[in-house]
């Protein structure tokens, strides 16, 4: 008997988790940003329920600080793959006075997403939201469950997580509580790219090398967008870069790269000596930044 490759095993595991989510919950959304992880989750959902259609819709929590390419991609992806797409914006939460924008040169709306997300979950009465987070991304994530229970305030209690023994999932919950489901928990960045290659999936262009006007922020290059306020000593320059993650444009950094095809991206990721999260300015704020956000109900 031939052993399965790691990716085949991880794919099977993710499909198992997606089917468990469908079997246990009535109303489920895939958190879809148009980024590579959420593309993979959406594609796995198509495969998991074939030939039936997947019982999930796509939900984008939009910070308003997007790369335009990603939004175009997002809408096209939903249309081409027959997914219902719902968008809820942080701007609306700000206008309703639910949250306040940060100010200053490193202002980001990343943290503000939490309120918009929880409001959207209440609005759609979601039992669960499926995310593309992986344990390899960050230390606090390394302890996440596949099925992560959230209390009625949407908060995560890392000390009181339900043990996930074997593959037995206890997905029971009370009214008002919900789950976050992370089918890619055991994947790496490389697995994500190899999956994209295997099924020849389209991804936003900003994942490939392109010329862009950027400015140095800490150890990353920030793309110049209307949302980034230039500082007196900032020296914008045009470089050939690509993004490893696509998120809020104010805190997602680019890296120097010449990779223009999936094969080249894979070669580059394989050789990379830095984690993907190192391009996120928001995680560099403090060592425990992610953990703090997750306690509040972040993705």
């Amino acid at each position: 008997m031939v052993l399965k490759s790691g990716l085949e095993e991880l794919e099977a595991e993710a499909i198992y988790m997606l089917r468990e989510a469908a079997a246990n919950f009535d109303r489920v959304a895939i958190l879809f940003s148009g980024g590579k992880d959420s593309i993979v989750v959406a594609h796995l959902a198509k495969r998991a329920f074939w030939p039936a259609s997947r019982p999930f819709f796509l939900l984008h929590v939009d910070t308003g600080h997007n790369f335009p390419e990603t939004l175009v991609f997002r809408d096209r992806f939903a249309a081409e793959n027959g997914f219902d797409l719902q968008v809820r914006t942080v701007q609306a939460s700000i206008d309703q006075g639910r949250v306040q924008d940060e100010v200053g040169p490193n202002a980001s709306r990343n943290g503000l997403q939490t309120v918009t997300l929880l409001d959207a979950m209440a609005e759609f009465r979601l039992d669960a939201a499926i995310g593309g987070a992986r344990r390899d991304e960050e230390k606090a994530r390394a302890k996440e469950r596949f099925f992560s229970h959230r209390n009625t305030f949407g908060q995560w209690d890392p000390r009181n997580q339900r043990p996930e023994v074997w593959r037995l999932i206890n997905a029971r919950k009370k009214h008002g509580e919900h789950f976050r489901v992370f089918p890619l928990s055991n994947w790496t960045e490389l697995d994500v790219w190899e999956f994209i290659q295997k099924y020849d999936l389209a991804v936003p262009d900003i994942y490939f090398a392109h010329e862009r006007e950027v400015v140095r922020r800490g150890s990353v290059w920030l793309g110049l967008t209307p949302f980034v306020t230039l500082q007196p000593d900032d020296m914008p320059e045009v470089r050939t870069v690509r993004f490893r993650t696509v998120g809020d444009a104010t805190c997602t950094g680019a890296i120097d790269s010449s990779a223009t095809t999936i094969e080249e991206v894979i070669a580059e990721v394989r050789a990379s000596r830095r984690t993907e999260r190192s391009t996120r300015a928001d995680d560099q704020r403090s060592d425990a930044a992610m953990e703090d956000r997750k306690l509040q109900g972040y993705f």
């Binding site: 344990r135 390899d136 230390k139 606090a140 302890k143 997580q161 928990s185 790496t188 425990a288 953990e291």
Partner: peptide
Amino acid sequence: DGLRAERSQKITIDVAYRH
């Protein structure tokens, strides 16, 4: 050694996964 609280106690508490 994982989460912040655990780091201060110098012990690992939950199950942490790594590749």
